[in-house]
Design a binder for these strands. Structure first.
Length: 492
RNA sequence: GGUCACGUGGCCGAGUGGUUAGGCAGUGGUCUGCAAAACCAUCUACAGCGGUUCGAAUCCGCUCGUGACCUCCA
């Protein structure tokens, strides 16, 4: 590998060479879901993107310590819901305990991510299990003068922090701008705060609030930024390599995380901030209010009014990886169909790879092509380019299979290794669906039927041969004739 | 109102100061008893208007359009 890994760092707004703190173990923290509902297409894009990043780092470095939070203390819903927390709201709807809501949707989250072949993180810390740590950190912030208590709640003093640090450096904002912005908007419930841009570290709980804990400031629950600061530092140290999350969280969530962390330790927090972009549906943003959300499990079953059919998890994964993680991705049935067909072609080539035969004087070289795969991934994890290169590799495989090109053993081994590395390990794609034989007996039976049909064909009994083909077609089984023999697969 | 992205061919989606991205669809061809599949080849582009430049889709400005965020909503 000649080129070096560069990543787009939101902090500097440009691509930077990635230099780890310790090249033996990379630390990465990614903001996980709040588990009050099923994972949707947006979650899929986000966590497949970071899975790609995780997998590539694993390929380059000996070890990657990957931490992703699962938020299980409510936090608030939007203004219209008036201070109700999301999990509490869902628990009333489903008439179960808040923690039962958490359990249910956390399991669904893992179910869907597993289907998408998203590798599990090393640690999935939950804020409800880190109340003690959060309370301690908040107390430290108060002791250091960066936070103040007001009426049972604790707020972070942004202007105090900004005196010695730089609030807004991640999102490119200044306090002046924030004040201006605030002046133009109607804000409620600001009375306890010294400044409108201060944010909550600890929130006093009303008696009706379902999730609350004891603290030095009375019963309450942690603010929605402190969990990430506390849990990332607990498992990765005060200063670590990568912090990731959705672009929409850069401000205020990640900005506040940085403020809390720097105020606590006086050290810089994460070195590289990576943000993934969002999903649009037929050019429109996906949102609850628009009613155009699509859950992962709906994609897999086709059970959504916007879906023409079901799309396999690998198709969805491939679709996501065909665009860059920092670009928005537009969903449509047409685009998913295109991804499905493209992936099928790539899969066929991968399957063909095992059957290739090397010849001693084969002239095809693959070193340069492999280098192009690394250059693509080293350029801020550019999976669309890597995939385009894999299609070039597929062309080579097909040409060799057709006898139009020759390859020697050394290059064939390199070709196989590259597909194992990039197709399977880094892009995390698997052979699935139509190319997969799910049952040995079925396959043996099919081989028998194919033999009978071949025999009929040899005797020019095309009526019988076609009848077999048509009947199988009715059973959603497709016969594919080849030069020598035939193969079969389930209809997509 | 403020901050920041983006606008590429029928569709999705990379990239870039002068050279083919790639996939899907389309078209032509090879193969086939026929069909399908597969394989090979190939067409259509850079929102609009100005400016910088020998040369811009790529840099700058403006216009139009889309989107994210603006503190207690991952």
């Amino acid at each position: 590998m000649k080129s070096k890994l560069t990543v787009y760092n939101t902090l500097s707004r440009k691509k930077e060479e990635f230099t780890p703190i310790d090249d033996q173990v990379i630390g990465m923290y990614v903001c996980g879901p709040t588990v009050y509902g099923d994972a949707h297409l947006g979650h899929a894009k986000s966590y497949v993107s970071f899975d790609l990043i995780y997998r590539y780092l694993l390929h380059i470095y000996p070890r990657v310590k990957y931490v992703q939070n699962i938020t299980d203390v409510g936090h608030l819903t939007d203004d219209a819901d008036e201070g109700d927390d999301k999990i509490a709201k869902q628990s009333r709807l489903e008439k179960v305990d808040p923690m039962a809501v958490v359990e249910k949707y956390m399991h669904n989250y893992f179910r869907d991510m597993d289907a998408l072949n998203v590798k599990r993180a090393d640690i999935y810390p939950r804020p409800s299990g880190h109340i003690q740590e959060q309370v301690e950190s908040i107390q430290t912030l108060i002791d250091k003068g960066f936070a103040y208590e007001a009426n049972g709640s604790v707020y972070f003093d942004v202007s105090k922090y900004d005196e010695s640090f730089d609030y807004g450096k991640l999102s490119g904002r200044t306090i002046e701008q924030l004040l201006e912005g605030a002046a133009n908007r109607e804000l409620s419930g600001q009375s306890d705060k010294k400044n409108p841009f201060d944010f909550a570290l600890w929130k006093k709980a009303e008696p009706s609030h379902l999730m609350q804990w004891n603290s030095p400031w009375g019963k309450g629950y942690p603010g929605w930024h402190i969990e990430c600061t506390v849990m990332s530092q607990k498992y990765l140290g005060e200063n670590f390599d990568i912090h990731g999350g959705g672009l929409e969280n850069a401000f205020p969530h990640h900005e506040c995380e940085i403020a809390q962390a720097e105020a606590l330790t006086s050290k810089s927090f994460a070195n590289y901030w990576l943000h993934n972009n969002m999903v649009t549906i037929n050019g429109q943003k996906m949102g609850k209010s628009l009613g155009n959300g699509i859950f992962c499990h709906e994609l897999f079953t086709g059970d959504n009014f916007q879906l023409d059919r079901a799309y396999s998890p690998m198709t969805v994964r491939f679709f996501i990886l065909q665009s860059h993680y920092r670009s928005t991705l537009d969903f449509s049935n047409e685009a998913l169909d295109a991804a499905s067909k493209g992936l099928g072609r790539l899969q066929d080539a991968v399957l063909k790879l095992d059957e290739l035969v090397a010849v001693a004087d084969g002239k095809e070289e693959v070193a340069e092509w492999i280098e192009s795969l690394y250059s693509a991934m080293n350029d801020d994890f550019n999976s669309p380019i890597a995939i385009a290169q894999l299609f070039e590799g597929a062309k080579l495989i097909n040409s060799v299979a057709d006898g139009k090109k020759q390859i020697n053993q050394e290059n064939l081994d390199k070709l196989k290794k590259a597909f194992k590395d990039f197709y399977f390990d880094i892009l995390g794609l698997e052979i699935e669906g139509k190319a997969e034989v799910d049952n040995e007996v079925t396959d043996e039976l099919m081989q028998l039927i194919i033999q009978f049909r071949q025999a009929a064909k040899e005797e020019r009994d095309y009526a019988t041969a076609d009848k077999i083909r048509d009947k199988l077609k009715e059973m959603k089984i497709v016969i594919k004739d080849h030069k020598d023999g035939a193969s079969w697969e389930y209809e997509d």
